[in-house]
Computed example of a mutant assay.
Amino acid sequence: MLALFYIFIGVAIGVSFWQVTRILNFRSSIANDKDNKTQGKNALYFMVFLYVMMVYCLIAMNVIMLPESASYEGEHDDNLFSITFWLIGVVQFIMQFLIFFFTYKYKGSKDRKAKFYADSHKLEFIWTVTPAIVLVVLIGYGLWQWNNVMDLSGEDDPIVIEVYSQQFRWDARYAGEDNTLGLGNVNYIKGINTMGVDMSDKNAQDDVQVTELYLPKGRKIHFKFRSQDVLHSAYMPHFRAQMNCVPGMVTEFGFTPKYTTEEMRQQPEVIEKTLGINKVRRAKGEDPYIFDYLLLCNKICGASHYNMQMKITVVEPDEYEKWIAEQPTLASVVK
């Protein structure tokens, strides 16, 4: 596949040089009706090729897209994406047709003279106001969704979890029975207290530190983010959630898991994608891939940025309660 790519690049460069040479030769020649007719037909051929490639990409490459949102809040992100995609797609298909068809229809001819229009206030009004209205609607929807994810003040009893980033790992801390996180600061990092929790804070005594996230299905999760060193970005693609982790400050967002990990593995899109991945891995002699939710870093934060990830497991509420009850508190671990 790589060799084919290099061949394509070589051919493209060769064609480019050939076209440049032809353009230089045009200085001493004038296009006639035959040339114009040929270029008009070429425009139609290219239009057909472009449409075929677009349809192929939409169908064949759909498998690389993310599956359905795994959070209720993420449904609005998917809606916004779909609306934007269809708006752009429809306009793209129409405009490409007009560009190439008019290139053919109004090709140069000795028997026809081009007409010149200085301006059209009606057309200017249409193509100025229409995009403006569309953008206002899309941006308004986007701002509403942003506020929906960021406004956690009215939520009833969300699970509060701190996600702590450092080169090149993630740690997480669950608020205990009081559902309030103890204070944290890099100055408190010592020994096994890798998240810098202030153990003199009474709210920190029942906090639970883990290296893998367990989330209950259908329960609001209130995430808070800190960074120890550089700018990281907490990215949970299947939940349509992302937030920068900034040294010296706390950032946050929230979402509600919609599917357990096992339920997501049974989604047709996930099954199809998993089969495709395992086909490649099998050819390389690698172990099979099993779908899991992941927390990734979406900032290039250093040499091992690519490997900075944490597994997220979504389970039924009763299974979550059993798991969290088995985890040791910080007071019993950090002395």
Results as ranks from 00 to 15, higher is better:
Lys41Cys: 04
Gly89Pro: 06
Ser120Asp: 09
Trp127Gly: 03
Ile59Asn: 08
Ala118Asp: 10
Leu44Gln: 06
Phe49Glu: 02
Met53Thr: 12
Met47Ser: 09
Met54Gln: 11
Leu135Cys: 12
Leu80Glu: 09
Tyr45Thr: 11
Leu87Gln: 04
Ile94Gln: 01
Gly142Lys: 04
Asp119Gly: 04
Lys107Met: 01
Val48Thr: 08
Pro67Gln: 07
Leu58Glu: 12
Ala43Lys: 02
Ser120Gln: 06
Trp86Thr: 02
Leu80Thr: 02
Phe46His: 07
Met53Ile: 13
His121Thr: 09
Trp86Met: 08
Phe46Thr: 14
Asn62Thr: 03
Glu75Phe: 04
Gly74Asp: 05
Ser109Lys: 04
Ser109Asp: 15
Ile59Gly: 06
Glu68Ala: 14
Glu124Gln: 11
Leu87Ala: 04
Met65Gly: 10
Ile64Pro: 00
Gln96Phe: 15
Leu44Ser: 06
Trp127Leu: 11
Asn62Gln: 12
Phe97Lys: 00
Tyr117Gly: 01
Gly140Thr: 04
Ala43Ile: 01
Ala114Tyr: 02
Asn79Glu: 06
Gly140Ala: 04
Gly142Ile: 01
Gln145Phe: 13
Tyr45Val: 15
Thr128Pro: 01
Phe101Cys: 05
Leu44Ala: 07
Phe97Pro: 00
Lys107Ile: 00
Tyr106Cys: 05
Leu80Arg: 10
Gln92Ala: 12
Thr103His: 04
Asn148Pro: 00
Leu135Thr: 09
Phe85Cys: 05
Leu135Ala: 14
Phe102Leu: 13
Ile88Asn: 03
Thr130Lys: 07
Val48Phe: 13
Met95Arg: 02
Met47Leu: 15
Phe93Pro: 02
Val52Leu: 15
Asn147Cys: 08
Asp77His: 12
Tyr45His: 09
